[in-house]
Amino acid sequence: MDALKSAGRALIRSPSLAKQSWGGGGRHRKLPENWTDTRETLLEGMLFSLKYLGMTLVEQPKGEELSAAAIKRIVATAKASGKKLQKVTLKVSPRGIILTDNLTNQLIENVSIYRISYCTADKMHDKVFAYIAQSQHNQSLECHAFLCTKRKMAQAVTLTVAQAFKVAFEFWQVSKEEKEKRDKASQEGGDVLGARQDCTPPLKSLVATGNLLDLEETAKAPLSTVSANTTNMDEVPRPQALSGSSVVWELDDGLDEAFSRLAQSRTNPQVLDTGLTAQDMHYAQCLSPVDWDKPDSSGTEQDDLFSF
């Protein structure tokens, strides 16, 4: 819950932080000083300027060897085509990944977070970031790969997607708890209302004896509580940590079903599988986004697919 609360507080303090972009060759504004600060901008989305290598189908939802083989196929196909790589912007948030063309600003792909089953910074092609997700059109699994400016960037994108998945799962947990509370309150309110109706004398007997209905007592009954809980029953509950912020979080049926399955089948359902080692994760978390744009010590960066 700490990640969720800190993310909400950060967004309320400075929503404009989320509009910064990394990996864009110096076009961005001043960047936060450390990885923790940038992680807090996830709610509205972190932007990464990358190059799209392509996509291939895979048979399993996750796995280092599986993704490595898929990336190898994608890279080989991209090299064989001889075409310049498409420059894209990857927007990562707890909602998922939005992929747009840098030149036309046209939407290429919009992947809900619950469809993503794996992401990684490839070991062999260490400047490549990739994720595996279920197609929104059918049940097939797709591996999408992107060329980053350097290994640090690939690791940073991988960690960002993993963190977005974690925050999304926490949102789901909060929403589920809130819905259970509202359902319980609604049920209790309905029981109270039913009890009051059972003990209320029939209207005919009131008229016969000349008694008047006590409207004041009726007004004191917990009807307002019942209506408050039943009027918006169809509205999706939102985490309290975000009250007053500009973010509107809505959970669709697909996300609810997917996270429910994860909660039942996995020990740590909030953790998205990645190909990063503990050492890689520690190294990337210690980086400032400013470091992502620094040239690798191995030599001059080449803006070309064939540089790796």
Rank of each mutant, 00 (worst) to 15 (best):
S16G: 09
K152L: 02
I108W: 08
L212R: 14
P237W: 04
E65I: 02
K51C: 11
N110T: 01
R182G: 11
I113W: 00
I113G: 00
K19C: 06
A156G: 01
A68P: 07
G25I: 07
D252V: 12
A3T: 01
L276R: 11
S49G: 14
I113Y: 07
L42G: 04
E250R: 04
K220C: 06
Y131W: 00
F169E: 01
K84F: 10
E44T: 15
G63N: 05
T104M: 00
S205Y: 08
P269C: 02
D214W: 09
A162H: 05
L57S: 03
K51V: 08
I98W: 00
N102V: 15
E109V: 02
P289R: 02
R27Y: 04
D101Q: 11
V236I: 08
T36Q: 08
M46N: 08
G254Q: 12
S117L: 06
R196Q: 08
K51Y: 14
Q187H: 06
L42W: 15
A70T: 13
G210N: 02
S243W: 14
K127Y: 15
E40V: 14
D234H: 03
P61F: 03
S260I: 02
A78Q: 05
V248N: 04
D280K: 09
Y118F: 13
L251P: 08
R182Y: 12
S6C: 07
E301D: 10
L57H: 05
N110M: 05
D214A: 01
A78T: 15
I132Y: 10
T160V: 12
T218V: 06
E142A: 07
W35F: 13
D252R: 06
E257K: 00
P201T: 09
L242I: 00
R95V: 11
L99E: 09
G244P: 05
L203W: 05
A70W: 08
E64G: 13
A284E: 00
S16K: 09
L242N: 00
R115G: 15
I132R: 13
E257W: 14
G210E: 05
L276D: 06
W22E: 12
N102C: 01
R261V: 08
K184I: 10
S307Q: 08
M124G: 02
Q240M: 00
R238G: 07
W292F: 02
V161D: 01
D296C: 03
Y131S: 13
Q197G: 00
Y118H: 12
A263N: 13
T56K: 08
M281V: 10
T230C: 04
L4A: 04
A70G: 15
Q155Y: 10
E250Q: 08
D252G: 12
T100G: 14
H282D: 06
M55I: 13
F48N: 14
I113F: 02
V236N: 02
C119P: 04
N268H: 01
E178Q: 01
A228T: 14
L215Q: 00
H137T: 07
K181V: 04
K152N: 03
K181I: 12
N105A: 08
A164H: 03
K79M: 03
F169Q: 01
G254Y: 06
E235P: 05
I74W: 12
